[in-house]
Amino acid sequence: MQIEVSGITKRFGSVLAVDGLSFSVRPGAVTGFVGPNGAGKSTTMRVMLALDRADSGQATFDGHRYRELADPMRSVGALLDAEGVHPRRSARNHLAMFAATNRIPDARVDEVLGLVGLADVATRRAGGFSLGMSQHLGLALALLGDPPVMILDEPANGLDPEGILWIRRSMRYLADQGRSVFVSSHLLSELGQVVDELVVIGKGRLLASGSLHDVLGTQGRPLVTVVSPDARRLGELIARTGAAVVVDDVGAEGGGVEGGGAGESLRLDVTGLDAASVGELAAANGIVLHELTPREPSLEDAFLRLTSKTQEFRAGEAGS
């Protein structure tokens, strides 16, 4: 099932949560929906599922809006954040009540409980479940209708590394079966190598979309990490060359400048200028370097650069 999102805009009072967002999600692929916290991922997903009413725009599943789908759980499976369970209801009954409304056979309830590894606790009260078990139950609910589309909002939340691996493998498996898997995360690294396509948003707007390589095509662009007590000045100088610079507090990273005295030491992540050029630039301007490391471009770097999570230098700001 092909998902088309076109021009969705959603306001909450004065907050513009989603701003004219358009993208598509194709079957047979895992599409990562990434952006910093507050970027509007959950809101977009709620609009797609007709839970929130968009101010404009719409989402369609093979041309149909969510509300037009008969027995929607058979077409779209959803795992949203802050999804609840009555604490005194068993996992099996929790699923059975939704299966009933969408004409899904009761036998499927036990099947999905088995799939997510909750068969042993099927009759136990869901109130006693750990965060991980609750996430698994949420995934069971999404799988209940054996839907061609899966919409998962931060499914890795609250899971241990093993659980995250399990989620990744499940998504890969579902996509390989030809389903459209649309999954959000504020950390691209959490999704890891499992995503085929990316939709990157920031402040409700589309920043980039396409295949992983198109979006994060950092090949050929050198990546360098620099630590310097005079990082701000160096950052401005580097930015003037046209390279991208993201500044990071070393202390916050737990990096090794304790005892250096200067709490000023900052780490710069430079893209588009190689280590030699950075070193020469520093020397020419009499700037001391504590570290100068060329790095392999990672997904997270490219993602951070796209979403500019941390403070970014701009050439125009030099000399302030």
């Binding site: 839970l51 509300r67 959803a78 949203l80 999804e83 609840g84 009555h86 929790h94 939704f98 409304t101």
Partner: peptide, 18 residues
């Protein structure tokens, strides 16, 4: 009201959007 309290209302509305 219990559906709102325990947060099952969202799944209820996604299963029955009308």
């Amino acid at each position: 009201a219990q559906e709102y309290r325990f947060g099952t209302i969202r799944a209820t509305f996604t299963s029955v959007p009308d």
